[in-house]
Amino acid sequence: MGGYMLRRALVAIPLLIVVSFLTFILNTLSPMDPAEVVLHTQGVPRITDELLTETRAALGMDRPLLTRYWDWLLSCLRLDFGDSYVTGKPVWSLLGPAFVNTLQLTLVSVIAVILLSVALGILCALKEGKLLDKSIRSVSFILTSMPSYLLAALLVLYFSVKLDLLPTNGMDTVGSYILPVAVITISYAGIYFRIIRSSMLSNLNEDYVLFGRACGLPERKITKRILRNSLQMAVSVFCMAIPIILGSTVVVENIFAWPGLGTLSVKAILARDFPIVQAYVLVLAAAFVIVNSFSDMLNAWVNPKLREDR
C-alpha cells in the first residue's frame, strides 16, 4: 500500500519537471519576440535594435536555455512568475486569487456532479427499462449534446431575466454559485450517471450476486454489495473527473464573469500577455498532475485490486 503510494508520487515528479519545461519553452515557440511585445505594451514610440537588445538582456534572454529554465523554475517555485506585460503587476497577485476562485467553483461543482450522478445512476439502474429510466436518459442525452454556453444562456434567460432570482455574473453571494455550478453539473452529470448506471447493471449480472443469492443472503445485503462494487468503479471515474472539470471551467467562467483562471487566461490571450498565459498553463498543468496522482492514490486505496495490478 505504502509502496504503491510512494511509487505513484515518484512518477509525478519527473512528469512535473517535463511539464514545466514544456511550459517554459512555450514562450520561445512564439512567433513574436517577447522583448518587442514588452516594448509595445509599454508604449515605446520607436523600437530600435539597441533598445531590443537592452530589453532582452533585462529579461535575461541572452543566457543559455537551460540556465534560464533553472532560474525560471526556481522563481516559479517561489510563486514569482514575473510581471504582467500589460498591467506590470506581479503575475501571482492576479493568478493566485483567480486560482482559488476556480478551485472553489470546481470543488462545489464536483460535489454536485457526484451527488447528482450517483443518485440518478442508482435510480435509473433500479428502474432499468422503465419510463423513468428512459426519460432521464433521453433528457440527459440532449443536455450533454448542448454546448454549455447555450445551456448557460437559457438558464440565465429563465432564472435571472424572467424570474429575476439569481445573479448572472460575478461571485458575490452564495447565489452566484448556483448558475455556473448548475451548468457544469448538468453537462458532466449527464455523462457520469450513465457510467454509474451501467456499472450497477453489469454488477447485477456478476457471479458474486448469484452466489450471494444462492447462499440465501437477503436482497438488502446483495444490493449493498452491488452498490459497493459500482461505487468503487465510480470512485475511479470521479477521480478522473476532478482534474477534467478543473481544466474545463473556461467557458463557464467567461459566461458568468467568474473571476477565475478561465476568465483571466482568455483576457490574457486576447491581450497577448504571455507571462500570465505561461503561468496559467504551468499552474493548471501542475495542478492537473498533482490532482491526478492524488486521485490515483485515492482510487488505489479504495480498490485493493488496483494496487497489485500495476
Binding site: Y208, F211, G212, P304, K305
Partner: peptide, 8 residues
C-alpha cells in the same frame, strides 16, 4: 474468482 464479492 467471480463468485465472491471482489470488494470484501
Amino acid at each position: 474468482m467471480r463468485a465472491f464479492d471482489p470488494t470484501n
